[in-house]
């Protein structure tokens, strides 16, 4: 396939992905916003006013970047895992498998679909947060790049999950038993400086801590970790997952008998 044909194939997959999540917007775009409104009301307004400051900011200001990042990661992950698994389940993935479209284009198409949904949710949640707190961006380049890279990483993660999944149960196991605990323990609601030294060390093994803190640095200018470390980890994880998915698709894992 020539470069122009490859570009058309990529655009087709991406457009199909965007059309899919926009067609079912009450399922894909509304629930994260409602969930975040509840977080803002309960943790920010009701409980947060009794907690006081954290890292030099009001508790509401402090948790807002983490909440935005949490909604972005959840949306990016769930988009690719549900879309790719549905395509497997309905066997419509065969439309791509029998065509000459290269595997890396399939990966990019699905992954960027997840990124776009994550970013749309990020914008919606950010706009919603302005009803509850004021936000000023400390470092725009860090904010944008970290949110895009993190969304891409979670999109790829969703793709790996979907490739191995054999039933709809399998696509909810990882988000429920792995991602949600890691997110809640990843510094969204607190600074790890509040933890005893041992638990600070344990927390640093949680990759989501780096993403949340790097994003928080972009917005508030404070972070529990070094931002360069976060970028390096996320970039390495993206490359690793991309290579893994490419290998899985080449082998036909979960797709070809």
């Amino acid at each position: 396939m020539n470069p122009h044909g490859t570009w058309i194939a990529f655009r087709t997959i991406l457009r199909k992905e965007v059309t899919r999540f926009m067609r079912i917007w009450p399922q894909t775009l509304v629930p994260p916003v409602i969930t975040m409104v509840l977080y803002f009301i309960i943790f920010g307004t009701l409980i947060g006013t009794r907690i006081g400051e954290m890292g030099g900011f009001s508790y509401m200001e402090y948790i807002t970047p983490g909440l935005i990042m949490m909604s972005v990661t959840n949306s990016a992950y769930s988009n690719t895992v549900s879309s790719f698994f549905s395509a497997k389940f309905q066997r419509s993935i065969e439309e791509m498998l029998i065509s000459p479209v290269p595997n890396y284009v399939i990966i990019l198409g699905f992954a960027l679909g997840g990124v776009l949904r994550g970013l749309i949710i990020g914008v919606l949640v950010t706009a919603t947060s302005l009803f509850f707190t004021k936000l000023s961006v400390h470092h725009l380049a860090v904010t944008l790049s970290i949110v895009v890279l993190t969304a891409l990483l979670f999109s790829l993660g969703g793709l790996v999950n979907a490739i191995f999944a054999r039933s709809f149960d399998d696509i909810s196991i990882v988000p429920t038993f792995v991602l949600t605990p890691l997110t809640y323990l990843g510094g969204v609601f607190y600074s790890i400086n509040l933890l005893p030294e041992f638990w600070q060390g344990v927390s640093k093994a949680n990759p989501i801590l780096y993403m949340v803190n790097a994003f928080r640095y972009g917005i508030l200018g404070v972070s529990d970790i070094r931002v360069e470390v976060a970028f390096t980890m996320i970039a390495a994880a993206i490359l690793l997952l991309f290579a893994l998915i490419n290998l899985l698709l080449n082998r036909g894992t979960g797709l070809r008998s």
């Binding site: 396939m1 020539n2 122009h4 044909g5 490859t6 058309i8 194939a9 655009r11 087709t12 997959i13 457009r15 199909k16 439309e95 791509m96 065509s99 000459p100 479209v101």
Partner: peptide, 9 residues
């Protein structure tokens, strides 16, 4: 969409 996967404008 199928045409798109084959690079057809």
């Amino acid at each position: 969409n199928q045409a798109g996967y084959y690079g057809i404008p």
